[in-house]
Amino acid sequence: MSARDRILAKLNAAPVLPKAAPEIAAWYQTHRGTESTAEKAARFRACIEFAHAEVYAVSHASWPQKLWEVLTAKKVEKLLVAPGTTHGQRAISVLSESGITCRGYEQSIEDWKEEMFHDIPASLTAARGAIAETGTLVLWPDAHEPRLMSLVPPIHIVLLDANTIHNTFYEVMSNEGWGIESQSAMPTNALLISGPSKTADIQVTLAYGAHGPKELVVLLIGEEA
């Protein structure tokens, strides 16, 4: 018998009565209301700003300008982008005229790991959506916008469309059919990001930039007056 079989045999031998399935939908129905996009955007913003992120209201037309302003203010001269995405392409075309270098994530990480860890001050990715009640960005890294983009560079800039903000995590996954093959099969990596990296491990004193980005900047499309 293998360890597997012995473990399963012991569990199966236990006198266990099946328990009723938890009524999760009902709990959220009772405890969470629906909100307008503007309300959700406002709540998202308040929460993620509380967690030390910077949020700028932009429009579809204006975000590249704000991106340039943010990078300039932070004295960033190089930005990691995803050339296979439309927003990546737009960033490249706008920033190339301004003296900020755009580095595309085009090779496997093995080919440029040193550079990624030592020589990339900032990155730009899009968010797939967000969660209002916790001020959370939802990212599904993929072949174009790989996992390390939102993790290794000290500054992470995220493009978010206010129309993709949901009220709760539960609402995101049920509305989008997460894990259901025909709708949204789970990607190799799905991420919720709710602020810059932080720790309180030394004397419960909060410090930012523990291992991930020290700064998180959200360009929130659609909130602009």
Partner: peptide
């Protein structure tokens, strides 16, 4: 209300 990262 949530951790900084939730990694799936």
């Amino acid at each position: 209300n949530i951790s900084t990262y939730f990694n799936m």
